[in-house]
Amino acid sequence: MAWEYYLVVMLVYLGTDLLAVWGLNLEFGVSGVANLAYIVVVAAGAYTFAICTLGPSSGNGGFQTYIGGFTLPFPLALLAGALAGAVVGTLIGVTGLKRLRQDYQAVAMLVVSLMVATVVSADTGFLNGSAGLALIPNPFADLDPEVARWAYVAVVAFCCLIGFLVLRRFTTGPIGRTLRAMRDDDTAASAAGKNVIGLRLVVQAVGGAFGGLSGALLAGFIGGWSPSAWVYIETLAFLSCVIVGGMGSDRGVSLGTLIIAVLLLQGVQFLPQISSSPGLSEDFGWIILGASTIIFIWFRPQGVLPERRPRYLGKSSSHSPG
């Protein structure tokens, strides 16, 4: 049924968006690294998943060319996607190692994002250029289509559950406190004995793994992946969820992801039907995203659900920061 299909699509998108937003929040909201190239780690995960499931480049009549080409089982391909995200995330993190102003680092990462897209689009032998990769096999192709769809939702939900448990290990407790200290003042953090460079690289790897897993799940669901899916502005969509929801707050950014999703769906409905420009609703979506980001930075920079800090009352301390 159509509504059921619609629901499945929504749930898969919501799940993959949540994973990506959690990863970006760990990097930006918690640790203060404004990774404007975040979509690149998502792409790394998606391409890796594709390469790991598509088989050799000569398959399917050789209509698309790419490096590698394996037929790994679904869970391993997902893992490979997460790993690729971690590696690429760490590499992107290297550009931020010089003790530069944070805004300058952010612009450097933005340029990285533009550049990787240019290179991948230009070189058809690497990842099939701007046409991208198609015919990525569905892991549940043997099942009844309706069952297969819900099976995919279950996989995404399971990944989100595991992802959230891993995320909390980094955002709560002493390590969460240390990362937030680094975000608030990295010089004072190194004066307090924190290895800021090491911590940043770890965060970039973990956040990258989240993005990579998100991309892998998305590629497996859609069955294709191309440069038009990871334009640099896609990072802004995740960033909006973080800023609207509440930087540094796991609950906040999860809510932010929901708010942005609803906002986009509802906002587009207000649009008069203009048959001549079918892309208009998407254009309007970007305008809404940009505007809500600016509005929140102006009026409520702490977001809808701001980060909360734990209280340490006497000896029985409770740890449940936002």
């Binding site: 004072a188 953090a189 004066a191 307090a192 340490y312």
Partner: peptide, 17 residues
């Protein structure tokens, strides 16, 4: 220089290497 978004006691706790 303090870690502005952490609480006072957290500023102390975080410093232990």
């Amino acid at each position: 220089r303090v870690f502005g978004n952490l609480t006072t006691i957290e500023n102390l706790l975080v410093a232990v290497p």
